[in-house]
Design a protein around this nucleic acid. Structure first.
Length: 263
DNA sequence: ATGCCGTGGAAACCACGA
């Protein structure tokens, strides 16, 4: 089974790219971020025609997350990260798919830092930490996939010294990610490739993609049930080179069949 | 060091992204 995460940067503007990648890669489950579309403008029919059931949580102009599946309809568990009734951003959606919990998240960018946006990012991280802890305690297969807007280590940035004061790389944020993983989660890409430079994002400007001036900010955190089944992972980097591409590339993991064969 | 590119929405510019 292949699970992917892809920050599409506008699901309607990128629809041809998304559909092309879906037909080429045929992932079983896909977490999308940055739909940039209200709930009623989600391209449900095109996604369905591509063979996917979907749930989504959008809002006008910004944010927005979705979970696609071609192995059975995602059963929605929640569409809000608990802990702040005032939070109006659509940044989290969670589903049960064949006895596996899939959390799709779009963590706030946080720039400029310091400032209210950075405070919001850290607060969101704290809520994610609390929720992830509860999910972990369920002792069931869980994957938390999405755009974390964090480069966990120096290896995840083309030029770390340039990013030390950025909200994606500041010590507080790296520490928050580390603390989250320390609950017992596995960073899937790093588990398989502990020493390799692997990026999931390249800026649109300054020729970043051609220079491979990238960042690794899209991650999969796996509970122990799924970590034991992890057989492959990668980034569909070439998609970033397509016309009208998002600035992120689709990132994926492959899991061996479960012992029960259910998922 | 920097929004240089790109999106969406409103209004012919602005907010936002990483």
């Amino acid at each position: 089974m292949v699970i992917a995460t892809y920050n599409v940067n506008g699901v309607n503007g990128r629809l041809p790219v998304l559909l092309r990648w879906l037909s080429e890669a045929t992932p079983d489950v896909v977490c999308l971020q940055e739909l940039k579309a209200p709930v009623e403008k989600f391209p449900e029919k095109a996604i369905r025609d591509a063979g996917y059931d979907a749930i989504w949580h959008g809002q006008k102009s910004w944010n927005g997350v979705a979970i696609l599946s071609r192995i059975g309809p995602p059963q929605e568990l929640r569409r809000v990260l608990p802990g702040d009734p005032e939070d109006s951003h659509s940044r989290y959606i969670e589903a049960n798919i064949n006895e596996m919990i899939v959390g799709c998240l779009y963590l706030p960018n946080g720039n400029p830092a310091p400032g209210p946006k950075f405070d919001y990012k850290l607060a969101w991280f704290k809520r994610l930490h609390a929720h992830a802890k509860k999910l972990y305690a369920k002792d069931v297969p869980v994957v938390l996939a999405g755009d974390y807007n964090v480069m966990p280590t120096d290896l995840d940035v083309y030029k770390p010294e340039r990013w030390v004061d950025d909200a994606l790389f500041r010590p507080e944020v790296r520490k928050a990610f580390k603390k989250l993983v320390a609950q017992g989660w596995t960073d899937a890409i790093r588990k398989l490739y502990p020493d390799e430079k692997i990026y999931t994002f390249w800026d649109y400007f300054r020729n970043a993609y051609a220079r491979d001036a990238g960042l690794r900010i899209d991650h999969f955190l796996l509970s122990p049930h799924l970590e034991s089944r992890l057989v492959a992972a990668g980034v569909d980097k070439h998609v970033r080179g397509w016309e009208k591409s998002s600035d992120h590339a689709p990132t994926w993991i492959e899991l061996a069949d479960s012992p029960t064969g259910l998922y």
